[in-house]
Write a protein that binds this DNA or RNA. Structure first.
Lengths: 358, 358
DNA sequence: TTGTACGCGTTATCAT
DNA sequence: ATGATAACGCGTACAA
């Protein structure tokens, strides 16, 4: 850069201003400097610039697993928005493990990212995220929101989405409806009877899967459909094989469900596979509603009725919120709820003749 | 850091040595410094360190589209290996556009990544990659290799994979076999008759799709099966709808193929959809072999016979090669070809009674 | 082994 | 509007 200044016959300060687009520079000199820079094939040292100015033009993304289509698509949205702002994204996988997430956030802070989009493992244990905010790095939560953290979050209404899906099955006449969800093995939710009413409730830290269970239970209650803890099963994350086993156990019940709500895309796969292996016709022998509008749900026979969420938009929106903060906007954390849609296809059919409650 | 030094009662140099694990420091002092750092909640400024040492502990990844399962999975492998080495990955999408890729590489260089894994758009136009090498940033090619660039590459044997798949169909008795591939619209390959022999050949820059077409043509030649340009169709990248239309056109031929080889995962989807929409039973009316062992290929009816490539391993291997270079290993570029596997399931059946050539 | 002092390439501050 | 110079936070000769 000193070379450029010399070549252009100006001071390094002026050269810096001309190339960095800051301060005031005369138009004639600016051109001369830029020409000199071109001639010398000079490009600025971004690291030095970052050190001096504090801005790295990088943001962080931390998700459970990029190879999961939900995260992959959300990340795409984040990257697109980042690029529009002249930023790049640094990627980290947490595998849904809190310690890994903590370390990842620390690394991102060390690299001085200007903001982080995170799909948090825990919604209660958020000290590491708070620390980030304290050092001036804004956080946007994706897929989950936390009352323990004053940050923007971009989510769907999990409870309502599940409620709608299950209500759809109830309206079809189903009363014995199962549910399968994938959750962190460490903190599998309990489904227990509430004292007094005897109605079921789900206990556990707020997470999409828990909220979806709540939506399921609420819908069942609405219709006075008898539910039992047997009917809602959970399985570990990211293990399709285990999901299939758990789905199979559900279908093997003495009184098997006539319909199942699968609360995420791997559960959906598990239920579909288990039904097929048991020779159960869908929707003849078993109705089902799945989660996530992935390509394959319309490739199989029958095409699946699913709850669709908008992962690309969720990623984009999260990034947009983040950049608003990065640009200095300061307001209380906002919870942005993006719409879901129940896409009715052919995997659920009517059951019985308007069968009434128990 | 000056604070830490003061707190520990040592010089900044000693504090730096103790925290940075370089130089010689007395064990007692080292502990005292680390304690002081902990007490003050000090963490080193990575940016300043990068500026001084030149190492950013970052690598770049550039792929066409992260939301594509192939890239998403490969990226996962890259990230895993990177973390094992204490590095993070900066992500960029090229959308298979050369100009975007060029800009992305430039940004990565500006950010001083220590290496780049790239699934290049073009295999001939590689000046930007060469420039990276010249400034000391090693490049590893993923999914494609280039004779114009002396770099490691991690690929599969596209020609052989296609050859095997098509041979499998030929052995089943098929002779009229179609092929569908997704390629960059800008440089769609030509399938033309070679002067003299009249046999078909594919013309165009080396890319996986072209090599797969070559494999297809070679296999057809082996069996003296009559091929024609009509039978091999190409469609734009990343457009499932267009892939389906093109597949439909293939099946609508006056003399339709009895079997189709789909050369990538979106083509596979296209062929499957087109067959279903035309009411063609698989494999009864149409046999097919697809590409990429995605979950859904075993969810559909019938489960699909496919050519499987190992995207996770490809990503891991690419990153490992990259780190070997980063650590200083210097040798000519190596072309690593990972094995593919023809996974036989139920989408292809025998045709005719050992029907002979034309 | 420990301390001093300089340099990395910018941007920010101040004076002109 | 331009120029001289300090400062960012760390690594590393060199001296002690």
């Amino acid at each position: 850069m000193a070379d450029v200044a010399r070549e252009a016959g100006v001071s390094v300060a002026t050269a810096g201003r001309a190339l960095g687009d800051y301060g005031r520079v005369g138009d004639d000199l600016r051109d001369r400097v830029k020409a000199a820079a071109d001639r010398l094939g000079y490009s600025p040292n971004v690291v030095a610039r970052s050190m001096r100015s504090g801005g790295t033009h990088s943001i962080g993304f931390v998700g459970a697993d990029i190879s999961n289509p939900f995260f992959a698509t959300a990340l795409r949205g984040v990257c697109d928005v980042a690029r529009e702002h002249g930023y790049e994204a640094i990627l980290t996988n947490s595998d849904d493990r809190l310690d890994v997430e903590r370390a990842a956030v620390q690394v991102l802070l060390d690299k001085q990212v200007e903001g982080i989009v995170v799909a948090p493992t825990s919604v209660t244990d958020v000290d590491h995220l708070k620390r980030a905010q304290e050092v001036g790095v804004p956080i946007v939560l994706l897929d989950r929101s936390s009352s323990a953290l004053d940050a923007d979050s971009v989510v769907i209404d999990n409870e309502m989405a599940a409620h709608d899906a299950v209500t759809y099955l109830l309206n079809l006449g189903h009363r014995r409806i199962g549910m399968l969800a994938c959750v962190d093995v460490e903190e599998s939710p309990e489904v227990v009877a509430r004292a007094g009413t005897g109605r079921l409730q789900a206990r556990g830290a707020a997470r999409p899967s828990i909220d979806r269970i709540r939506g399921y239970l609420a819908a069942m209650d609405d219709y006075l459909a008898p539910s039992s803890a047997d009917l809602v099963r959970c399985t570990g994350l990211g293990s399709p094989a285990q999901a299939e086993r758990e789905a199979d156990a559900l279908l093997a019940l003495a009184q098997p469900p006539t319909a199942v709500f699968a609360a995420d895309n791997v559960a959906t796969q598990g239920v579909f596979r288990a039904a097929r292996r048991r020779g159960l016709a869908i929707p003849g022998d078993l109705s089902m509603v799945g989660f996530d509008d992935l390509d394959w749900t319309t490739l199989v026979d029958p095409p699946l009725t699913v709850v669709a969420q908008p992962p690309l938009d969720m990623g984009r929106t999260a990034a947009e919120q983040l950049f608003a903060r990065i640009k200095g906007e300061d307001r209380p954390g906002e919870r942005i709820v993006l719409p879901t849609e129940l896409i009715v296809r052919s995997s659920a059919a009517g059951h019985g003749a308007q069968k009434r409650s128990a």
